[in-house]
Amino acid sequence: MSAPDYQPQVDALVAAIQGHVSGPAVDLGLQHHSAILPVLHWVDYLKKSQLTGCCDDILDGVRATLVEASGCIALGLIRPALFALRAQIDAALAWLYFKDHPIEWEHLLRTGDGFKARLEVIEYLGRFIERYLARFAVLNSHRTRTVEQPYRVLSAHIHGQSSLVLPTFQNLAAMVYPEQRCAEAITLQSDVAEYINDIFLACYAGRWSSLPDEIVNAAKSRIPAPKQAQLFS
C-alpha cells in the first residue's frame, strides 16, 4: 500500500478519535477514575508503609497501567485498554512476590528470566501468608464484581483463541469503539480493581488499624458483620 492509499485510513482514524474525544471521553474518564479508586488507595498505602527496597518501582508501574487504561478508553481504543487491565493484575502480583525476593528480582533484571505466572504467585501467597486463603474466601463469597476471575476474561481477549473475542476491524477507524463498549470496559475495570483489592486485603487485613479508611469501610460495606472478624484477624 502506498502512502496516498494509506492516508485516508489514517485521516479516518484521527477523525474517529477526535469524535470520541469531543463526545463521551471526559465522562468515561471520570467513570474510569471512580472504578480505579480502590487500587489507587492501595498503591498510596503500600508506597508509604510496605516498601522493602526491592522492586519498589513495580507499584509505580501499577499506577502507570491505570493511567494507560484511562487514556485508551478516553480515545475509544478498547483493545489496548484490555491489555492494560490485565497488566494491572500482573504487576500487583509481581510486586507481592518480588518485594521479598531480591535475589530472584536481580536475576530477572539481569537475565530476563524468572517471571512469575499469576497462579504461581497465588499459590505462593496461599502457602506463606497466614490466613490469606481464608480471608480471600470471605471476600470472594461477597464479591460485587460481575465476573469472579476477570483475569480469565482478559486473557481470552488477549490470546484471541475464539471468534467471540477476536477483533473484526476492516479499517483503522473501526479501532475506535462506541460509547457502550467503552462503558463495558469500565465495568471490567471495576471488576479488576475489586479483584486486586481483594488480593491485597487478603494479605494485609491483619493490619486493618493502619489501612486507609476507604479500604476498610468498603470491605465492611460488603462483608456481613458476623464475618468481618474472619477477615480482619
Rank of each mutant, 00 (worst) to 15 (best):
W208N: 07
C55D: 00
Q31P: 06
Q189E: 11
P102G: 02
C182E: 02
E194F: 03
K48I: 08
T52M: 03
E194Q: 04
A94T: 12
N140S: 10
K227V: 06
A193W: 00
S162N: 09
I199C: 07
I122P: 00
D60C: 03
I89Q: 05
R131H: 12
L85R: 03
W105L: 01
Y204W: 12
S49H: 13
S209N: 09
V121S: 01
A218N: 13
L37T: 14
Q228N: 06
L166R: 12
C182Q: 11
S163G: 13
F83K: 12
V147Y: 01
P24F: 01
L46N: 09
S2C: 09
S233M: 13
S190H: 04
A84W: 00
V10N: 08
H157V: 15
Q7I: 15
I215N: 03
A156L: 11
Q161R: 14
N217T: 14
A94C: 14
A193M: 06
Q230G: 04
K99H: 02
C182G: 10
H32S: 08
A15E: 00
Y177F: 12
Y195N: 04
P178N: 06
Q50P: 02
A91E: 13
S70C: 14
L75Q: 09
D56C: 02
Q170K: 09
V138C: 09
V216M: 05
I58H: 01
V14I: 14
S49G: 13
A12F: 04
N197D: 11
S2W: 10
R152W: 11
D44S: 09
V43G: 00
A229C: 03
P224W: 14
T111N: 13
F115P: 01
